[in-house]
């Protein structure tokens, strides 16, 4: 366990020893500020900072930015090791390939969590500056729920990215395919929504905020437990493909 956490620390340092790692955080901070300024200019009135934050961290606001940043940063987590040749040194230590890959995936999940926590703080700070501190329990609940849904949405796409990165060994191709999926997935689902199989499409299920009160699910008849189950199956398949490929592949 200790040896595994040290592997995760290694992966974390590989991410954070680069100055470019600050970019997603800077963008998210800028997002919070700009979003705050925009809604203020449009004359929207919020009773409290938390009420503002609940809107700003929702899937249709921060959810349009944060997952993309996570995908762009995580694409290359494995393929760059191949490209730089460092994979050779990584794989000739006394750790199984499963463990090495699991440490990378764990670091990716921690990175997603860090982005979400950072965003939550950023929008709360912005909201507090503009509308003052405070908020009702409902707003805090909504913030928590949004963070959870954001984590699930981002994790699903990052897992997909992780798999494509391993299969293609090219961070460029990976970013391309993964971003295409995020952007066109929803549209494709919409086009196919008249067929009953459409609800099994990954993209129909990733955004769990569709089950929030007042929202309509993408395809009638879908429920939260159904979508969560579909997502679990997809994530398991992506991980299975990733680990099997990574374990078996000759490194040359």
């Amino acid at each position: 366990m200790r040896s595994f956490s040290r592997l995760v620390l290694n992966e974390w340092l590989k991410l954070f020893k680069r100055s470019s790692i600050l970019v997603p955080y800077v963008i998210l901070a800028a997002y919070a500020a700009i979003f705050g300024y925009a809604v203020f200019k449009m004359g929207s009135e919020f009773g409290s900072g938390a009420e503002f934050a609940a809107l700003a961290i929702g899937m249709s606001s921060a959810g349009q930015v944060l997952p993309l940043l996570a995908i762009i940063t995580m694409a290359g987590m494995v393929s760059k090791e191949y490209r730089m040749g460092t994979i050779k040194l990584l794989l000739i230590r006394a750790h199984s390939r499963n463990k090495i890959l699991a440490s990378k995936y764990t670091a990716a999940l921690l990175f997603i969590i860090s982005l979400i926590l950072f965003t939550a703080v950023a929008v709360l700070v912005t909201g507090t500056v503009v509308y003052g501190w405070g908020g009702e329990a409902a707003h805090w609940n909504e913030i928590g729920r949004s963070m959870l849904f954001m984590f699930i949405y981002t994790t699903v796409y990052v897992t997909l990215t992780f798999m494509i990165d391993i299969l293609t060994k090219s961070s460029g191709v990976t970013v391309g395919i993964a971003l295409f999926c995020v952007m066109m997935g929803g549209l494709a689902t919409l086009l196919l929504s008249k067929y009953s199989f459409a609800k099994f499409i990954l993209f129909a299920n990733t955004d769990l905020s569709q089950f929030n009160a007042g929202n309509e699910p993408m395809i009638p008849g879908m429920t939260l437990p159904f979508s969560v189950s579909v997502l679990i199956v997809y994530v398991a398949l992506f991980l299975l493909a990733s680990f099997v490929t990574f374990r078996k592949r000759d490194v040359s």
Partner: peptide, 14 residues
């Protein structure tokens, strides 16, 4: 085992 295979490769930014 300790080894260098082909070229010694490291994380250049570290």
């Amino acid at each position: 085992i300790g080894a260098i295979i082909e070229n010694p490769e490291f994380y250049p930014y570290m």
